[in-house]
């Protein structure tokens, strides 16, 4: 009980801290809609004057795809957390966490959750307005069951994103500049996670290969559940695999932390 209380305070602090960034978040979400709109226009131009679908996608389902991506991204994307963790390590700030009865991973996870909460609240208005404008192409999940599977998958996506970013940020124990590493991984997440385009327009062999990596489970998988494109056995199988990746990422994060803390020299602390 005390432990829950303790981390509940962290969430509170996190919310208050990120609230100072609300204008920043608003800019971010509004500016983010511009390239989204551009991508949608690009697909409109491609679908124009053709009767056939693109790898099973109609224009409406394509637009829905990008809109749901935007929502899932707002709920799960790691935004400043990895920079802050790296800075904490570089500046020796984590020394104080080593002395306190607080678990750094749980602490950061609480801050991450708080940050997503505030971001989603701020981004809600512009994104909702945008979706209303595009309402002709926007679909809601067909059944309540899909809703619950989708929410479960989004929660796992958030955890997966967080654990991987956390692990990347821990590289700061070994190297001075982690930002380049973070951007390299981010690039792969961006394309192989399905940010840029729905992965099922890729050649089937490539798609099959991607499903062996964690990337599709960082975005593409929950979006597909929402759109009703992953159902039945594939759904349950996918959820199990996603759970596996979350567990693996968690263990990796713990392991790297353990290695890093052994090496840590408390520079400047």
């Amino acid at each position: 009980m005390i432990a829950v209380n303790k981390y509940w305070h962290v969430v509170n602090i996190g919310i208050q801290n990120t609230l100072t960034y609300r204008v920043n978040f608003l800019f971010r979400s509004v500016f983010g809609l511009i390239p989204l709109f551009a991508t949608l226009s690009l697909w409109r131009a491609i679908f124009e004057g053709r009767q056939t679908s693109v790898a099973g996608h109609t224009l409406a389902s394509m637009v829905s795809y990008y809109l749901v991506v935007t929502i899932v991204d707002a709920l799960t994307a790691v935004n400043e957390d990895d920079w802050q963790i790296a800075t904490d390590i570089k500046d020796g700030n984590i020394s104080q966490f080593l002395l306190k009865p607080i678990d750094y991973l749980t602490y950061r996870l609480c801050l991450f959750g708080a940050g997503r909460l505030v971001y989603t609240a701020v981004a809600f208005l512009p994104v909702a307005l945008f979706i209303v404008v595009q309402r002709n192409s926007f679909v809601l999940p067909a059944t309540g069951a899909i809703w619950s599977w989708f929410l479960l998958s989004v929660a796992m996506t958030a955890l997966l994103q967080f654990f991987l970013s956390y692990t990347m940020a821990l590289l700061a124990f070994w190297v001075l500049e982690v930002s380049t590493f973070i951007f390299v991984v981010f690039a792969f997440e961006y394309i192989a996670g399905g940010h840029l385009f729905p992965l099922d327009i890729l050649p089937p062999a490539l798609l099959k290969f991607l499903y062996f990596t964690p990337f599709p489970y960082q975005l593409f998988f929950p979006v597909n559940i929402y759109l009703g494109r992953t159902t039945g056995v594939a759904l349950y199988q996918g959820l199990c695999i996603q759970m596996f990746w979350v567990a693996a990422a968690y263990l990796l994060a713990r392991f790297v932390w353990h290695k890093g803390i052994t090496k840590y020299g408390a520079v400047g602390g």
Partner: peptide
């Protein structure tokens, strides 16, 4: 002081510069 978000926002504009104008 927090003009960071605005400056970052310009990055999203680069995305438009690389799109063919016929799409719009």
């Amino acid at each position: 002081v927090r003009a960071q978000g605005i400056v970052w926002g310009y990055y999203s504009l680069f995305n438009i510069a690389r799109m063919p104008d016929a799409a719009f």
